[in-house]
């Protein structure tokens, strides 16, 4: 058997820095090529010799082409090379889908946020990464480009397992396209062992509104199964309801009952289940509060009213 040898520096590979996306895609057709965006996930693996490759295609010269926001009525198309830091500013999306800035705030520390990219994180597909959870919730169409073709793949068909995706070696995620309800608010919250680290459990949810009534809702949770999961039937329970304590309690208990988390060295199943419930509760309050803050609903900010204090 061979020894596991953690290295200091990468083994040799080639480096390319194309100036156009087309060039980049052609280069990626070569054997063992990897796209390099921020390098936040890839280069450590190369340093440690956990991954071995023939070459990298550095995307820095094409980054500006993949930093765009196309906003349509019911849709938002986001270039893949926005950094976490850029996404943490809600102004980037013109105030639409503040979930992005909410989630970005939980990622790493300032140096990581300035460097890591949305597309890089989706390609790496760490099941505890904030973007993987957000993508699981929003289930966008991923725009995947190769020299041969461009295709669209819904996120739920893209993510095959922890760090396993349907992305071919020569394909690049160029954009994500999200369908957005007309009026929606969001919640994102997590518990990690240390600020900025991957979450033990994280929750993202969206609530679509029909005036002050819930028209539609989605909940996604990471850390309770091998990859983040959604809760379609529980989310359906929220439809046509008005925000209330009773509803929050109901959803919280339903989520606790529905999850079947693993126990591992970082946290046990019971605690993960408990966190799933608590975090859903907190995230629902965020989403409801946002709605009430916007003055769109008569529903008072529950959980913050005087009577709630103990």
């Amino acid at each position: 058997m061979h020894c596991e040898v953690f290295g200091l520096y990468p083994y040799p590979f080639d480096y390319f820095r194309p100036n156009t996306l087309e060039e980049a895609l052609v280069l990626a057709q070569g054997d063992g090529m990897k796209f390099l965006a921020g390098g936040q996930s890839l280069v450590p693996l190369l340093n440690l010799h956990v991954a071995e490759i023939k070459g990298v295609v550095d995307l820095q010269n094409v980054a500006s082409a993949l930093k765009f926001v196309q906003s349509q009525q019911d849709r938002l198309r986001l270039g893949s090379l926005w950094t976490h830091d850029e996404l943490s500013h809600s102004s980037l999306l013109g105030g639409r889908c503040p979930l992005f800035s909410q989630a970005a705030a939980f990622i790493g520390h300032p140096r990581i946020r300035r460097r890591g990219t949305l597309g890089g994180s989706i390609a790496h597909a760490d099941p505890l990464a904030e973007w993987i959870l957000v993508m699981t919730l929003l289930d966008p169409q991923l725009i995947l480009a190769s020299a041969k073709e461009e295709r669209q793949l819904p996120f739920h068909d893209y993510l095959l397992g922890p760090m396993m995706t349907a992305l071919s070696d020569d394909e690049l995620i160029t954009a994500v396209e999200i369908s957005l309800p007309e009026k929606a608010t969001y919640g994102f919250t997590e518990v990690s062992r240390r600020p900025g680290d991957y979450a033990l459990v994280a929750t993202a949810l969206s609530v679509g509104w029909d005036r002050d009534r819930i028209a539609q809702a989605d909940i996604a949770i990471s850390g309770v199964s091998d990859v983040p999961r959604t809760f379609p039937s529980i989310s359906r329970d929220m439809c046509q309801e008005y925000p209330s304590h009773g509803l929050v309690e109901h959803i919280k208990h339903a989520v606790e009952a529905a999850v079947d988390p693993p126990s591992d060295v970082l946290a046990g199943a019971s605690y993960r289940r408990h966190l799933a419930g608590i975090l859903v509760e907190k995230a629902l309050h965020q989403a409801f509060d946002e709605m009430s803050n916007a003055g769109e609903t008569a529903a008072k900010s529950i959980g913050k009213s005087e009577g709630e204090r103990t």
Binding site: M1, H2, G7
Partner: peptide, 24 residues
């Protein structure tokens, strides 16, 4: 520690270490 690989570069030493085969 089982053995030590000495090489002209750190990379070669690491590659050498990985090429050592130990039967356990």
């Amino acid at each position: 520690p089982i053995c030590l690989v000495i090489a002209k570069t750190p990379e070669a030493a690491e590659k050498g270490a990985r090429a050592i085969e130990v039967e356990y």
